[in-house]
Amino acid sequence: MKKLNRRTAAAIIAAAILAVILAIYIGGALLPAAAIDADFSQKGLPPSPGHIFGTDFLGRDMFVRTIKGLSLSLTVGAVASAISAVIALAVGLTAALGRGIVDHAVNWFIDVFMSVPHTVLIILISVALSRGAAGMLIGVAVTHWVSLARIIRGEVLQIRSAQYIAAARGFGKSRLWIARRHVLPHLLPQFFVGLILLFPHAIMHESGLTFLGFGLPPERPAIGIILAESMRYISSGAIWLAIFPGVSLVILVLLIDKLGSLVRYLLEPREAQM
């Protein structure tokens, strides 16, 4: 068989990753809640062909719980990164288009924002909004836009000074027309990749926060909850309770990250690819 070239391989891998992520998401949504009802006859089983991730102290299948947890993480991650990306877009555009004092002010604000550790800020926001799903979602959303805002600002500033923009102005084109015709096509790929790369961060923060007890409420089937619960059983030797969900989360995060870099590679100009 002929060896695949890099571009083709990248597209195939990206499609495969996307399929896995979608499968987890849809699987988690479709699996009936009954699948994780307590079943004391199956209590605390180690991994086996019937329960590949084992079962917990209430006899719930850990594989199903993990999938449901990841699915929830994906939902939260998607909503949080989408909000974050929109904020990034708004801030980045304001800085770049405002220039002068506005730009300075926004940059100063970004610097201040970056100097505060994410986790602390999310916890504060989440607690201030009386914890729960909404608080955590907002906490994650409003802390993740910073780097993407910077990228967008830089990108817009660069395009703004392009000669073809000056030419378009010379043809009497409106700002809106120029933005749609010239700025957006440059910005969209950057924005899109930035959005994907926000995803893993958001998921990690969501799980971390939930694990610490500041995030999703305990009745939700979140990965953070599963991990927090499992901690209590590790000393008793039921390490599968923590390892499988934990490793699954890490793998999911790495997959999304990889997807982001593959998409970035595929959107690059062809000349830069080998």
Partner: peptide
Amino acid sequence: FLMYDGGFAR
């Protein structure tokens, strides 16, 4: 130079 054509061929 090894280059990409339109789609995935090079």
